[in-house]
Amino acid sequence: MARLCRSFRKTLIQQLHNNHQQQQLLPSVHSAGKTSTNPQFRRTYVSEMRKSAFEGNILRLLRNEIQYELERSPVNQPMETFGSFILDDRSGEQWIRLKRKFGEDEDIKIEVTMFDGAVPAPKSGGVVGGGTDEDMHLHITFIVNISKGVGGDVLEIMCSAWPDSIEINRLFVRASDNTVAQPYAGPEFKELDDELQDCLYEFLESRGVNDDLAIVLHEYMKNKDRTEFIRWMETVKSFIEKK
């Protein structure tokens, strides 16, 4: 998607540049078959022509890009649940939220970003891929908050979702008012004992935070990324069309 946006912007800039060059070559302005001798009239007329051509180019590019995105593949209806999680997705936001109950007293809330990074995907034999979209592994950040009872401390676990796996980056305990419960927030996750790391992954997996969730999040965010991009272009188009 980032590649498509860059291509769209590049095309738009080129069109505006070409339009500016063409306007430099405009002949003397005619009105009703007669050449106007009023400099102010000529300036106003040329300015209006430039504005109309400028906006026309933007609208054409937006319509073409919207049509391309809609024809490339259908935009799926967002799901409302995944397993035991209830999903909350609000239009125009960069986040989605998941929540569920676990056991008798645990409340689990997960906040998930849209794609916020990428790394080269390894090829067969351990060779790192190139820089095209197909050669990149997109990254999603998500934060798991686990609380027990109202007003108690919250276990916060910061994670990464790769295309087919999750990765724990850090965890700490904070107070319910979002302040850190204690000054020492703990070490980086990879500094922990290997067996403890495995147990913490099992702790999350038993609560539905696992590799299957990573796969679902990537599919969901691909759809949301396109949906938000199309919505943004429609909004810009409607604004420019407004008289």
Rank of each mutant, 00 (worst) to 15 (best):
K109Q: 15
Q94D: 13
V127F: 06
I66F: 04
V127A: 13
V127D: 12
D89A: 13
I96L: 15
V127G: 06
D116W: 07
L98M: 15
S91I: 11
D88Q: 11
R100C: 09
I108D: 02
L61V: 06
Q94Y: 05
F102D: 12
E111G: 08
S73Q: 15
V119H: 03
F85L: 09
Q94V: 12
P122T: 02
Y68F: 12
A53C: 07
T81A: 11
N64Y: 01
I110C: 08
L70I: 05
E93L: 13
E55V: 01
S91H: 09
S84K: 14
E80Q: 15
E93A: 09
P122D: 09
E55G: 00
L98D: 00
E93C: 08
E106L: 12
Y68A: 10
G56H: 00
E80I: 10
I58L: 10
R90G: 00
V119Q: 08
E69C: 05
V112S: 04
E80N: 14
F85W: 04
E69Y: 03
E65V: 03
S52Q: 09
G56P: 01
E55M: 05
R100W: 02
A121L: 09
Y68S: 11
E111F: 08
N64K: 15
I96P: 05
W95S: 14
G125Y: 06
K99I: 00
S124I: 11
P122N: 03
S73F: 12
T113H: 00
E65P: 00
F54C: 07
Q94G: 12
R97A: 12
E104H: 14
A118Q: 09
N57L: 11
G125N: 10
M79D: 07
